[in-house]
């Protein structure tokens, strides 16, 4: 007679891949690591091309605010630094974030909790569509439509708030100022911040919201006590994604900000620039040495945006994990 042995513990499962599968897995893995290769190559090549600049100027390339190629024959007469452009990148991006985030919160809440069901699906698609509008179209719109409006607003701001250093200018002529570029950037990054915020708010625990209603709370009470605290870190991540976008934007800033090599904190003055628009601006008629400086500037921009995006991704992913 046969006896049946009951195994005391589950059988260990081993996976043996066939040769086809091993080839398949190896192939897919190498393709998947393509992005790693590209990111490393970008850093390596920009460093390789721009190394001479870092060797010649060192840290002063980041801190000086002067762009003078001197005698084109003699590279030692050149003084190149992107300090003003870095400041400009930060100033415009900060304006963009400060304007965009409150509106993004309101939009996300509206789409998720206030809009009727039909409108909600439409708005979600519209948000994706607006996020895909090419930056050159934002740029031309900003230059033609937004510029006269912002000039007007700048006049009013200057009239009443010029005692505040931020809104002071030497001569009250307004034009392609950091304020204009910042406002345009805020319109451009709003969709991405909104969709991240909307996604996070949508995951807010329904039972807690219902509990808030059950206790007699209003809709706002539920949002204030459940949704907003829940979505805080996701919102921060979304805002940082927007910050990264704003700092790396080229064409829209190129069209709406006067490139002047001066560290400018006066957001109404028509002077400024950011690193990306500097590259687009100087690229056309750059000397060899200047081109190397642009490569170096590109490397700085790459590293800064990578860092911002790194933190943004970590924060967004962490807020997803809580769910």
């Amino acid at each position: 007679m046969q006896t049946l042995d009951t195994p005391t513990e589950p059988r260990e499962i081993e996976t043996h891949y066939t040769r086809v599968d091993r080839v398949f897995r190896g192939f897919v893995t190498s393709c998947a690591l393509f992005s790693l290769v590209v990111l490393i190559l970008i850093a390596a090549f920009l460093l390789y091309r721009g190394f001479e600049i870092f060797a010649d100027f060192g840290l002063s390339f980041i801190t000086t605010s002067k762009w003078d190629i001197g005698n084109p024959e003699d590279t030692s007469t050149a003084v190149l630094g992107i300090g003003a452009m870095l400041v400009g990148s930060v100033v415009t991006a900060v304006i963009a974030i400060l304007v965009a985030v409150p509106f993004a919160i309101a939009s996300a809440l509206f789409i998720e909790f206030y809009a009727p069901r039909l409108l909600r699906t439409i708005l979600t698609s519209v948000l994706d569509l607006v996020a895909a509008i090419p930056s050159v179209i934002f740029g031309i719109w900003g230059y033609v439509v937004l510029l006269p409006l912002v000039e007007d607003w700048s006049g009013t701001l200057y009239k009443y708030l010029s005692w505040f250093p931020l809104f002071d200018v030497q001569t009250p002529i307004f034009g392609r100022s950091p304020l204009l570029a910042g406002l345009l950037l805020s319109i451009m990054i709003l969709p991405i911040v909104t969709s991240v915020a909307r996604e996070v708010y949508g995951q807010a625990p329904r039972d807690l919201i219902d509990a808030s209603y059950a206790l007699g709370g209003t809709k706002w009470a539920g949002i204030r006590t459940v949704v907003l605290p829940f979505g805080k870190s996701g919102l921060v991540g979304g805002a940082m994604l927007g910050l990264g976008r704003a700092m790396g934007e080229t064409v829209a800033v190129y069209l709406t900000l006067n490139l002047v090599f001066k560290t400018n904190f006066q957001i109404l003055a028509s002077a400024g620039g950011n690193v990306a628009s500097l590259i687009a601006n100087k690229f056309g008629e750059a000397t060899d040495y200047e081109l190397k400086a642009l490569m170096a500037a590109g490397l700085v921009l790459f590293l800064v945006t990578l860092l911002v995006n790194f933190f943004a991704t970590v924060i967004v992913n962490r807020s997803r994990k809580i769910v």
Partner: peptide, 15 residues
């Protein structure tokens, strides 16, 4: 991939 989506377009061009 997420980090790559944040690469400024001008940097891709420069590369």
């Amino acid at each position: 991939t997420q980090a790559m989506s944040g690469v400024p377009s001008i940097v891709a061009g420069l590369f």
